[in-house]
Amino acid sequence: MTDLPRLSVTERLIIELLTAHEELFGLRMVELSGGRLKRGTVYVTLGRMQEKGYLESRQEPLPEGAIGLPRRLYRPTGLAMRILAAWKAAEQIYVTGANPQEA
């Protein structure tokens, strides 16, 4: 039996945000989180989540006339969606007290 990978509160929030919006860049996630994500740490968390295989990213094409670096857009992987679903199911069982073997 394999252990269910851990999901921190921040990681869960990021996956939920990305599930709701499909693809987002770091700063937009901070804005949408209502203060729960911080600008200084979100990129470090996003980098770690990419390493774990929870997220994938692509560079946004630069708009015409824009200079600077292209923004990075993140989306959740299937693994992240499965882990989130598993944790939600586990929470449901914990809250309702239902035994999955009885069902």
Partner: peptide, 19 residues
């Protein structure tokens, strides 16, 4: 790897916001 995964996205968002 850290520059590409952490600092480049941070700076890219910062630059776009500034523009």
């Amino acid at each position: 790897a850290t520059v590409s995964s952490v600092f480049e996205p941070l700076v890219a968002d910062w630059q776009r916001e500034w523009h």
